[in-house]
Design a protein around this nucleic acid. Structure first.
Lengths: 338, 338
DNA sequence: GTGAAAGCGCTAACAG
DNA sequence: CTGTTAGCGCTTTCAC
């Protein structure tokens, strides 16, 4: 390591001023081709890279974006959701040469203590927030701070805020329609938390599919599972007296619980009761029988979130972007058809 | 948002100079308690936060550290390794108020193109590198750049470099000793890649356990599995003619393959052959029979890596830190004992 | 096209 | 103890 390279030094070596080198580095016009060449050569030789902090200070752009993951559901650690999401996110960051910072919080205390840091001036150009169960105070603070941001997973209020989400309504609707087409008559559902948009939307999709086929909604066939395996086990047992011949379960984790309940009640899947889950966890493929489920394009999802954020940074947050990604029904054995 | 807060403005409001405010913000001594109070009050009122880029430029410290994840083995996406690691890493970052940046690469091309960015001046105070299979060129470049760094997982050369690793030798030794104590006589092993320290060390532990109990090493009982399930399946079949009554498999993914091979050969586990894996994947607990395996403290691991890095940043990289974490043998049913 | 000059907001000597 | 003064390395007018 000899001494540190600066624009000034590169300028000296190329026989031009610091300003010209800056123009070359930032590929601005108004530099004679021949001069540009010469500067570029010196940069290549020396391996010069601009000092990020200095550039940030002068240009008011840091080249950093943040990914904020609020307190995490335990479930997401047996689930490749985050790794996949990160793959998509980092890939786009790499393509656009922005640096990703990761904020993961482990407790409410940490969140309140550290949220200000996310908003801190001179730190980030924009933020991707993974929406948590409750209404996240960070979203409101981001909105009033003017820092560009986008939410992954539609927040329960939404509209004014940009978000990228999976089309949970259509995903659920497709799953339930499939059960209908297979001739199932008494289709129950085990719902997720109704304070999360995913929970709400998947129930809505269930309703729409039934209604679209001219059926009535029987509230007795709807049981709350809260996105937890244990609760879903109980919910399935509660549904049994209604004699459902199919059940749409709003997550694979819960579907596994429901499957257990059916087995312990001595019922056959899919013979007596067909089951469809949601998420396509790795566990779904190796369940017995293998679980029919709805797959989400998580990787693309992360990629799209960052692309949209970069676009917002570039062009402003108006109008808010609302992006919905389609899902895919993965047919395995628990639905008893193909 | 009204206009931006700066040190200068806070100084005005508190009736002191910018320098004094700076001292208060950085909790330096030499400020009269009463003045400190007053400044602190103004800061609290206004919600002032120092501009990170400006501070970085002036102090040559960014408050950012990087986590570099080289091209990822596919397996690590069905494995909660990274989520756990990130939990530990981010927790310590949060405690010490440093911001984590994440570099994940998806191809060799991306690596070579983007490594310079990691080294870029004015960006990071230090780097945690997750060691990849091959010898990573990044490590050499970090070493010569003078940027503080630490490696997760001992690099195959090591010694001059600081690292945090799991004690794979002892972990494997404990596992094999357990099989010996259970009375198994012909203990085979399926090894991981021998160009990775984890693969080497786990084989070494196998050897030590055998030697410590006064047994000879039978090379015919050692088969290469390369850390892949399919290869391990084949390896197990190759071992069968040697009539092993136990096998230590250097990863759970491979152990699952071995289990398959044993089943298809009509052998009972643990009746005919006992099996011990390594990693304690979620799949290990739900294998049939549930897999005895070696658990690594991944979360602590990530935490310790960051703590050590911060220490290196503080006090310099000499001497290199070499930290080994103990593992835990998780006894389930495939070893046929407790 | 190109250079000179003025900061960006902060830290860190250095006086006092 | 506190204020004044230089920069940190870059971008960005503004002249030429």
């Amino acid at each position: 390591m000899d001494e540190r390279l600066t624009l000034e030094k590169i300028g000296e070596l190329a026989g031009v001023s610091r300003a010209t080198v800056s123009r070359v580095v930032n590929s601005q016009p108004n530099v004679r081709p021949e001069v540009r060449e010469r500067v570029l050569a010196v940069i290549a030789e020396t391996g010069y890279q601009p000092h990020l902090a200095a550039r940030s200070l002068a240009s008011n752009r840091t080249g950093l974006i943040g990914l904020v993951i609020p307190r995490i559901l335990q479930s997401l650690f047996t689930d490749p959701y985050y790794p996949r999401l990160l793959q998509g996110v980092t890939q786009v960051c790499n393509e656009h040469a922005v640096i990703l910072t990761l904020f993961m919080f482990h407790s409410e205390d940490e969140e309140t203590r550290l949220y200000p840091r996310v908003l801190r001036p001179g730190t980030l150009d924009g933020v991707v927030v993974v929406s948590s169960q409750e209404e996240d105070p960070l979203i409101a603070r981001l909105a009033e701070s003017g820092l560009p941001f986008i939410v992954i997973g539609r927040p329960t209020d939404a509209t004014a805020v940009s978000y990228v989400d999976v089309d949970n309504v259509t995903g659920a609707e497709t799953a339930v329609s499939h059960l209908i087409n297979l001739g199932r008559q008494r289709i129950a559902t085990i719902t997720g938390r109704q304070d999360m948009s995913a929970g709400l939307d998947r129930l809505e999709g269930y309703r729409r599919a039934l209604l679209a086929s001219g059926r009535a909604i029987d509230e007795a066939l709807i049981a709350a599972g809260e996105f937890e395996e244990g609760q879903a086990y109980e919910a399935m047992l509660r549904l049994l007296p209604q004699q459902p011949d199919a059940v749409f379960v709003a997550s694979d984790a819960m579907a596994l619980g429901a499957l257990n309940a059916l087995h312990s009640a001595g019922l056959e899947v899919p013979g007596d009761v067909a089951v469809v889950g949601y998420d396509d966890l790795p566990a779904a493929a190796i369940a017995s029988p293998p679980l029919t489920t709805v797959r989400q394009p998580i990787r693309r999802f992360g990629a799209l979130a960052v692309e949209t954020l970069l676009n917002i940074i570039e062009t402003g947050s108006e109008p808010p972007r609302h992006i919905l990604l389609p899902t895919e029904l993965i047919i395995r054995e628990t639905c008893g058809g193909s």
